[in-house]
Nucleic acid binder design. Structure first.
Lengths: 114, 114
DNA sequence: CTATTGTACAACCATATGGTTGTACATGCA
DNA sequence: TGCATGTACAACCATATGGTTGTACAATAG
């Protein structure tokens, strides 16, 4: 069952968001448990505002979601989006596998003619 | 068998390269069969030089490799790199799965106390 | 109420990115 | 030889990105 087709812009945002080490580190942490923005910010050598921006990039890409808890904003990883990115890569692997079969067929033909 | 650990910069390049619709389209084409840069360039509404740059971004990320064939430069998809990107996403999914288990355990405890 | 904590957001700056045009050069064909 | 094709690369430009600081405001603690 297909959830929803991703637009080019959606995919741009997903991979763009993952193209930064700080944001990947955040992903690794919030996929396991929800963490507040300030908790996240505490561990990086940059301003709170910078971390806030990174989180908002991940949020725009639907890689994380935020929910209010008192005065804190809890950031949690969004598994479905990660899975869709994975599916895209898997489809390329599938193309590659088909090429491999095609090449094997050609070699097979050559084998017969020799 | 692990091939090689990817540095942050390597992963930055991989996901950065995938964060563009033209480059993803190129990937989809060259994973199936090797194509010359000019063949690729023919189908996009941009200059040859622009496509050349996109290919070189993919090449720096090790997502494609080029080989000379006469005066043409044949671009082919690089499956191992795609697979490594996929593995990274899979590891996050695994973290998420562990969180799900953890939550289920908590719910289980609560169930017993009620 | 007041102070502290956590967040939001604007303004600013340096650098990276994605496109262009122009030039140069190697290869293949007539 | 001469010409078309395919590639390489530099220079340039507009916009996006990743960081900063500063200000403002909501929620909690004393």
């Amino acid at each position: 069952m297909v959830v929803h087709a991703l637009s080019d812009l959606d995919v741009d945002r997903i991979f763009g968001a993952l193209a930064d080490a700080t944001r990947r580190d955040i992903m690794g942490r919030v996929m396991y448990e929800g963490l507040s923005v300030s908790t996240l910010a505490h561990d990086y050598a940059m301003s709170f505002a910078a971390v806030q921006k990174h989180v908002s990039v991940l949020e725009r890409a639907s890689l994380v979601t935020k929910r209010r808890h008192g005065r804190e904003q809890i950031v949690s990883g969004n598994s479905p989006t990660v899975e869709r990115a994975q599916t895209l890569l898997a489809s390329w692997e599938e193309l590659w596998r088909q090429r491999a079969i095609q090449i094997a067929d050609i070699l097979g033909e050559e084998g017969r003619t020799t």
